[in-house]
């Protein structure tokens, strides 16, 4: 039953996506070109990485609002480790990602060890991590990275933006992990009924910590890619990223109550939002008009699925 409804939402959304792409292609000749689509892939990589793991988090019945701040902190640390501590850039980026991952671990630890609800715990760390980024950076930007570093964010491999390869690999790995492994099944079980999952011997706390740690890692990785794409660091990077990611996940059919959802759905959700933003802009609609339409569509899509499910139930 649950698998069927799941497919249902994704099929609806996929159809919506196809209709949308065709409609937008008619609206603007520049929309449906390889160069534009690949470029859009480049622009959505950071949100995409975060949203994929956010899917895991939301399926466990949690939420992670601190991802934007982790992105900002990682970006700042990459610059500070490289310039102020004089580490090789590769090591600096690696160390920054490690710190970002640790931030995710802290979220998971606070949530499981102290039983703080995820919304509150990550609301607090949202302020804390952003504050650390501001304090450490002292409002200074770090610029002037070596050219090879820009390959990650601005270059291509085999004609495809470098970071899009990372996103694709990440998406495949995550889909397989969620759909076809024991860990994936535990994640669904925890989201569906945490108490039952605990009593059936699943490692509830360990799994949750792992999921939040992974979320920190994804945000940190996105942070380094972001620095490479825009070639500078700022402590306000990634502000509001959490809401973009959650919108994509929810639009993709993952239940905010946990227990239901898929990576494919999230990816379709991402594509729909990104192509709306891009296509409407190309068709001459201003950013604020696009915001209104995305809001309407988010409510509309969930309303449709809910209505549909109610009739079937």
């Amino acid at each position: 039953m649950s698998l069927r409804t799941l497919l249902r939402h994704e099929t609806i959304l996929a159809l919506v996506a196809v209709v949308l792409l065709v409609a937008l292609a008619f609206q603007s000749a520049q929309f449906f070109t390889g160069a534009n689509l690949l470029n859009q892939g480049r622009l959505m990589t950071e949100v995409g990485l975060v949203a994929i793991i956010m899917t895991f988090v939301i399926i466990t019945g949690g939420i992670d609002l601190s991802v934007g701040s982790i992105l900002g902190l990682t970006a700042i640390l990459t610059g500070v480790f490289w310039q102020n501590l004089g580490l090789p850039l590769m090591a600096a980026a690696g160390l920054a990602i490690a710190v970002g991952t640790f931030c995710g671990f802290v979220n998971g630890f606070v949530i499981t060890r102290f039983g703080v609800p995820p919304l509150i715990a990550t609301l607090a760390t949202l302020a804390l991590y952003r504050g650390l980024a501001e304090g450490i950076s002292q409002a200074r930007s770090v610029r002037g990275y070596p050219d090879w570093f820009y390959v990650l964010g601005q270059g291509n491999i085999l004609g495809v933006p470098t970071q899009l390869w990372i996103l694709i690999a990440f998406a495949i790995l995550a889909s397989v992990l969620l759909a076809a492994t024991r860990i994936g099944r535990s994640i669904y079980a925890i989201g569906a009924n945490e108490v039952a999952a605990f009593f059936s011997g699943l490692p509830v706390n360990r799994t949750k910590i792992a999921v939040y740690t992974a979320s920190g890692f994804a945000a940190a990785l996105a942070g380094v890619i972001f620095v490479s794409r825009v070639s500078t660091t700022r402590s306000d990077m990634g502000t509001g990223l959490e809401l973009d990611a959650i919108t994509a996940v929810v639009l993709g059919g993952t239940s905010i109550y946990g227990g239901r959802g898929s990576v494919i759905g999230t990816l379709i959700g991402l594509v729909v939002i990104q192509s709306l933003k891009n296509g409407l802009s190309l068709a001459g609609i201003k950013a604020e008009g696009t915001a209104v339409l995305i809001g309407l569509m988010l409510i509309g899509a969930i309303l449709m699925t809910t209505a549909f499910n109610k009739r079937r139930a």
């Binding site: 809401l243 919108t247 905010i256 109550y257 201003k286 696009t290 809001g295 988010l298 809910t306």
Partner: peptide, 27 residues
């Protein structure tokens, strides 16, 4: 109404509403 009777999770409705209000204000 959307939350209580149409049974859409409140975070979804209000996320959407936030986007609509913000964009609408500037428009």
């Amino acid at each position: 109404w959307l939350v209580a009777f149409a049974r859409i999770p409140s975070i979804v409705v209000t996320l959407g509403m936030m986007s609509i209000l913000r964009g609408g204000l500037i428009s």
